[in-house]
């Protein structure tokens, strides 16, 4: 079975973001970028499926400018077989991204598509669900356990009250939650090998997708800043302040 994994280049999760002075966006100049943590988990899961003999080929795809090839190479170093970059200058809206991925699915005919449940920059949590709708595949979002057997995927999902298990016919779309696995580190030999693995570049035009632009970001603001309060010396003082000053007890 072929597994397709979608990955995104995002700001490193430890970096504190700054909003640009003109409020048009956050400032990403000279910030450390990385593979989105949820995408890393998706790549790891695909590699584990290959190690179990369930998957025979892993294709990673990313949508972005040339810089996202770095994250594709990272994915190849982690164990993916080949990569596809869909070259766009600026990030399209989520629906267009799902449409681009749907075209890749149509071309590649994977048995399973793995994505992260959300990107830590836009925090949308949409792409996997939209892709599933466009390709008429079943979906299992927020997966914390994935078993492929007898032509179906049995997926345990993290839901608000606890866990839920679903059975999906294949092909299917699965989005990963943090507890699905612990991603491995790429070894130096694997990083070297990844440089020779195939990486194809495609354009939205080649895929026949017209990028819509129905969502406009009017401005980006810094959230109201919470300032540090006071340090108290004892539990008695804390309870007293909560009762008399904050009046929350």
């Amino acid at each position: 079975m072929k597994v397709l994994v979608a990955v995104k280049r995002v700001i490193d999760y430890n970096v504190r973001v700054r909003v640009k002075a003109d409020n048009t966006d956050v400032d990403l100049a000279n910030t450390k970028m990385a593979l989105n943590p949820f995408c890393e988990i998706a790549v790891e899961e695909a590699v584990r499926l290959k190690e179990k003999g369930v998957a025979d080929e892993i294709v990673v795809v990313s949508i972005g400018d040339k810089a996202c090839q770095e994250q594709l190479r990272t994915s190849l170093a982690l164990g993916a077989d080949r990569a596809i970059q869909i070259d766009v200058a600026t990030a399209p809206d989520p629906l267009s991204i799902a449409k681009l991925l749907a075209k890749v699915v149509e071309q590649e005919q994977p048995g399973l598509v793995l994505l992260g449940k959300q990107a830590i920059d836009s925090d949308n949590n949409q792409t996997g669900q939209m892709l599933a709708a466009l390709t008429k595949m079943p979906q299992a979002t927020f997966a914390s356990e994935l078993v492929i057997a007898d032509g179906k995927a049995t997926v345990t999902r993290e839901v608000d009250g606890g866990m839920q298990t679903l059975a999906l016919s294949l092909p299917a779309v699965v989005t990963t939650d943090l507890r699905l696995n612990e991603p491995r580190y790429a070894s130096l030999p694997n990083i070297m090998k990844a440089k020779r693995k195939p990486l194809a570049v495609m354009t939205p035009e080649e895929l026949g997708v017209t990028l819509s632009n129905n969502l406009t970001t009017l401005r980006v603001d810094t959230p109201p800043v919470r300032s540090a309060g006071v340090k108290v010396e004892s539990v008695a003082e804390l309870v007293n302040k909560l009762k008399t000053e904050a009046k929350v007890l």
């Binding site: 920059d121 925090d123 129905n214 969502l215 406009t216 970001t217 009017l218 980006v220 603001d221 810094t222």
Partner: peptide
């Protein structure tokens, strides 16, 4: 909110 709540985006939809 975007970026883990570290920025607030105002978005307009033409859909």
């Amino acid at each position: 909110p975007i970026y883990a709540g570290n920025a607030i985006a105002t978005v307009q939809s033409a859909d």
